[in-house]
């Protein structure tokens, strides 16, 4: 089975929000909710300021707390390593939302099930990339199989330092970040 991961090369992100819009359109994400977001933070002391644009989404963790805390088995780790939700089994107890350190989940208004990024699994099955990756004009978001050494994600991760969000949570995320300062200019 492939080992799907996403690499977010922050060096190329321009904060255009095209990924957010594409995701909402592709997945019919309800108003006021997002499966992916671009967090903008400004750090430092004036005049030495640095802005970080960081795309965030479900990390499809190898040790997902949302899955281990789901009381009905509605949240599950599929064979390709992505974390998915069986909407019919979901009782809307919100334990997964509380358990996710990345705040990647929300309750779908009106229907009550927990919803989140599926890595556009329906597109992957058709041989396409996730909508956010396909639309990213700066090629900041890269998707692929980490077990394939020829894949772009493997090459990117081998040539640059990468990090994951909240490693202390012990979730072993599958979304990797290449930060601006990770490669010397």
């Amino acid at each position: 089975m492939p080992r799907y991961v996403m690499v977010i090369d922050q060096r190329n992100c321009i904060g255009c929000y095209a990924c957010v819009a594409a995701c909402k359109t592709e997945n019919d994400v309800p108003l006021e909710h997002f499966r992916t977001r671009v967090v903008e933070t400004v750090q430092g002391e004036f005049p030495n300021l640095r802005m970080e644009l960081r795309s965030e989404l479900c990390n499809h963790c190898d040790n997902p707390p949302c899955v281990s805390n789901c009381p009905t088995g509605a949240s599950y780790k599929s064979k390709d390593g992505t974390v998915q939700i069986n909407r019919n089994r979901c009782v809307g107890c919100k334990a997964c939302i509380a358990a996710c350190p990345y705040d990647a989940r929300y309750i779908y208004p009106g229907q009550g099930f927990a919803d989140k990024c599926t890595l556009c699994i329906h597109r992957i099955k058709q041989g396409k990339e996730p909508a956010c990756v396909a639309t990213c004009i700066g090629a900041s978001r890269v998707f692929g199989d980490l077990d394939d050494p020829q894949s772009k994600v493997s090459q990117l991760l081998s040539e640059a330092n990468s990090s994951v969000l909240l490693p202390e949570a012990g979730t072993r995320p599958r979304v990797f970040y290449i930060r601006k300062q990770s490669k010397p200019d």
Binding site: T72, R89, C90, V91, G92, G112, F113
Partner: peptide, 10 residues
């Protein structure tokens, strides 16, 4: 619970 009628899944 957001989905009262799915309680049986517990």
């Amino acid at each position: 619970l957001e989905r009262h009628f799915n309680t049986y899944w517990f």
